[in-house]
Every structure is written in C-alpha cells, then in structure tokens.
C-alpha cells in the first residue's frame, strides 16, 4: 500500500484535494493495541466530514452496487437491483459476475431480497423497483 494518497473529496461541491498519509500504527499508550486511527493522517480537508471520508477512502474504499438482473415471467426484461450496504470497491466486478446467473422471478416488490449474502459479504441484493407479472401478450394490430 502506498503511504501517501491524493484524491478529491466528494463530500461537498468544494472538492478539497485530500492528501492521506498512512504510517505504521504506534502502540496505544493505554491498551498497547496498534492505534490505526492516528496512523492515517488526512491533510487538506476543510471540514471534519472530509477527514472521515478521506480516512475511509484511503484505507478501505466502499461503494454501493447498482445493476440489473434478468427477469422471468415479468412485464419487462430487466429488474434494477441495489446492494443493501456498500461493498469493498475491488469486489464490484466479482459481484456483477455472480449476479449474471441470477434471475428475478416476478412478482417482486421494491426492497425484496433477490439474492442474499452476496459473495459471502453479508450484503443482500434488493429489488429497487416493483416487478409486475407479464400480462397476456399485448395485442398488435393487423
């Protein structure tokens, strides 16, 4: 892991350029456990929220995952889905691959779990829209 990272803060439109230094954690004076909190130093943030963001982003960036699933018996071919919590950034593509084989069976309500415990991360994939059952094939003219 590189000891210094630079990136733009996305907490507000100001867009501070954050520099995050990661040092070897020192032992806590009281408990003797490594003090990770002080080992990550965020410079350049204009506010406290930026410091929190910078620390998380530099050590273990997390991202939500939104994608679509194939459907079965539904009135449309794809169902939008979202993760119930943020995933480690580096697992996003693996998660998509895992979801390739999942089929959403209509009917579903927005918020229903369509895949539990994605990649063993303890995160579920939820329907992010209602999915209605396909009505009888719509008439076409002629």
């Amino acid at each position: 892991m590189s000891p210094v990272k630079q990136f733009t803060c996305i907490v507000c439109p100001r867009g501070c350029l954050l520099t995050v230094e990661i040092t070897e954690p020192a032992a806590d004076a009281v408990s003797g456990a490594p003090n990770y909190l002080d080992a990550v130093r965020v410079v350049g943030a204009a506010c406290g929220r930026g410091v929190v963001y910078g620390r998380q982003e530099a050590t273990a960036p997390l991202r939500s995952l939104t994608t679509t699933l194939r459907t079965s018996g539904a009135d449309r071919p794809r169902l939008p889905v979202r993760s119930s919590a943020d995933l480690p950034l580096e697992r996003l593509l693996d998660a998509c691959i895992a979801l390739d084989t999942v089929v959403a069976q209509a009917p579903l309500r927005c918020g229903d779990v369509v895949m539990a415990d994605l990649l063993g991360l303890g995160i579920d994939m939820l329907a992010s829209d209602d999915l209605a059952v396909c009505p009888a094939n719509g008439a076409s003219h002629g």
Partner: peptide, 25 residues
Amino acid sequence: LKQCIHDGFGLVRYKEKLTGPEYAR
C-alpha cells in the same frame, strides 16, 4: 428515472440515497 438505476437520488428531499426507480416509486 426508470432507467437511472444508480443511487444518489433523494439526498435533499428524503435525506436518503435512493436509486432512480426507488425515487420514482
């Protein structure tokens, strides 16, 4: 919004991070 499946909608109105379809819902 039906096709905006990503999240980030509703932070001002609902103080929540919704997907497009959820916001529309």
